[in-house]
Design a protein around this nucleic acid. Structure first.
Lengths: 325, 325
DNA sequence: GTGAAAGCGCTAACAT
DNA sequence: ATGTTAGCGCTTTCAC
């Protein structure tokens, strides 16, 4: 098996120094055009691919952004990934994605991997557990997206996320406008998200002059294993005529349960949108996050911070849009 | 901003040579236990993370597998990614995923990126266009998954994919068993996949003693822009009482069109499964691919080839499973 | 059991 | 316009 082609091989073949090869391949203006073309052809013919690791080590920087994702099977996050990839590519960065499956220890490994690969910065959407970000990250630039780190340290980092309070308020208001008198909520297991979405829910009720009832405010487990039971609880026992699922995975679990129940008409709402909601047998209202914009904002901010590390930490809140399927 | 901590800093702090640090951190048996523990503590305290790029360059290998995906928004491929990540992690490899959005030029860039990052091997599920794999890859180990390279060169590489002929045959047979007398097919734009799925379709018809009719065998564009019109064509104009979508993206487009049409009952079938098919207003039969197994097979084979480059190229065919939602 | 020195592939001063 | 040299951070002989 032929050894890997290096710049040395190209230099030997072309009869010039390695430095000239390097210059020619990097389009340095100071190498003669004829030489450059000759060298590029030789490199091509030899099947030469520069060793990016060696390059990165020499120039002391990479063009890699690390991205930590809690659940790659979740449609919301695949859209995030795509938006991040696009924005990153446009800025000349490549992306190292790691899926943690909502496991804290995998988040720690993911971060380690990214640091070892010398990521220029990281985008974190996992933030489940007790990871000590400050200690792990050192001074690697980081932006948190969607899921936030613990309150104490959140303000040290840039954050990009949807306006949960407003989005949920608008969503619940819409359910009420459509006739719901008693809207139950199955909230998210992610703490800050849950707090904000609950707040929006309460606001909508207050504005509509409807009472709060703790009995119809329940919280899903991370794996949604209790959602089926809660769905029955709210729609049957508690006689809710409106149900809000605080994210798309919860809604999925709710939908799986509904056929078992024999229910009078009720209003259904979900934070996060899915294309296939169009196919459901009953209408559904969603708060659709501006995912592309979230991804782009995160990347732009991260790159800004890479280039200028002492920017003040900022929070970016983007508006959700109410959609009726 | 504090400079990045290197092995040199740890050596200075510990009062030993860099070589000893390296040995200690790599659990070399020849370093005294006390020394090792002392060094590991110092490294920890300093927030030292080894530079993986430098390491890779020195040992002349990486533990990175490149993965090229045509459409990260497609549920099928996110499952593939997850299976690959899991199998790779288990074998001590990390994964570099690049999404090409079905664009040939992005596939070429993706491959270049992987070669520059010195990927130990690549898994390719894109294979859309005229990429010259042999020239691009050189002797980088590669495994093709799901989408195959052009016929001429396919046999030079390992391939992992579902048994399309059998899967489609079983699927169509199921539709016929459920009462369909005239099953139309909207085939995939991916050529080899299409050929095989058409073959399975024909076989099922032959076994059932039903005639072939080219008028009800149509092909979707890559972007599915013609699927809506074809759906009407088959179900209305051609009066099919059965419709097979040859992949999940086609089925999605079909489902979006159905509400516009006012149809007598008919049988619906789809290659590829989706969880949310459960929620559809009418039953649907699918051929579910063994995705986890496909991913694991691909990774295992790739790693085998990395360790033993002159293995003969092989094809792995895995059976799909018929599911009725 | 530990240190000194070389070198992986590349680029950037500094020469010429 | 091109060559020479040094060195990025790490591991691995080869000494001791």
């Amino acid at each position: 098996m032929s050894r890997k082609i290096t710049i040395k091989d190209v230099a030997a073949e072309a009869g010039v120094s390695e430095a000239t090869i390097s210059r020619a391949l990097n389009d340095s203006p100071q190498v003669k055009k004829a030489t450059r073309q000759r060298i590029q052809k030789i490199a091509q013919d030899l099947g030469y691919h520069p060793n990016g690791l060696a390059r990165s080590i020499r120039v002391q920087k990479t063009n890699t952004l690390g991205v930590i994702i809690p659940d790659i099977l979740n449609n919301f996050f695949t859209h995030i990934i795509r938006a991040i990839e696009d924005a990153a590519a446009q800025a000349g960065y490549d992306v190292l994605i790691v899926n943690t499956d909502e496991q804290d220890d995998r988040e720690v490994s993911a971060l380690n991997l990214m640091l070892e690969k010398q990521a220029a910065g990281v985008i974190i959407t996992s933030a489940g557990g007790p990871t000590n970000y400050a200690a792990q990250l050192g001074n690697t630039p980081a932006v948190f997206v969607d899921r936030m780190p613990p309150a104490g340290i959140a303000t040290q980092y840039d954050r990009v996320l949807v306006d949960n309070v407003r989005g949920t308020q608008d969503l619940v208001t819409q359910l009420i406008d459509r006739g719901a008198q008693r809207v139950g909520i199955i909230n998210s297991a992610v703490s800050m998200t849950a707090t904000e979405r609950l707040k929006g829910y309460h606001r909508a009720l207050s504005v509509a002059g409807q009472p709060h009832d703790p009995a119809i405010e329940v919280t899903a487990r991370t794996d949604n294993s209790n959602v089926a039971q809660m769905t029955r609880q709210l729609l049957v026992n508690q006689r809710c005529d409106g149900l809000l699922a605080a994210d798309n995975t919860i809604m999925d679990a709710v939908l799986h349960k509904l056929p078992d129940l024999d229910l009078p008409p009720f209003q259904l709402g979900s934070f996060d949108d899915q294309d296939w909601f169009d196919f459901l047998p009953q209408p559904i209202v969603t708060a659709k996050q501006p995912i592309a914009q979230i991804g782009k904002t995160a990347v732009d901010r991260l790159i800004a911070r890479i280039n200028q590390p002492d920017l003040p930490a900022e929070e970016f809140r983007l508006a959700a849009k109410i959609i009726t399927h």
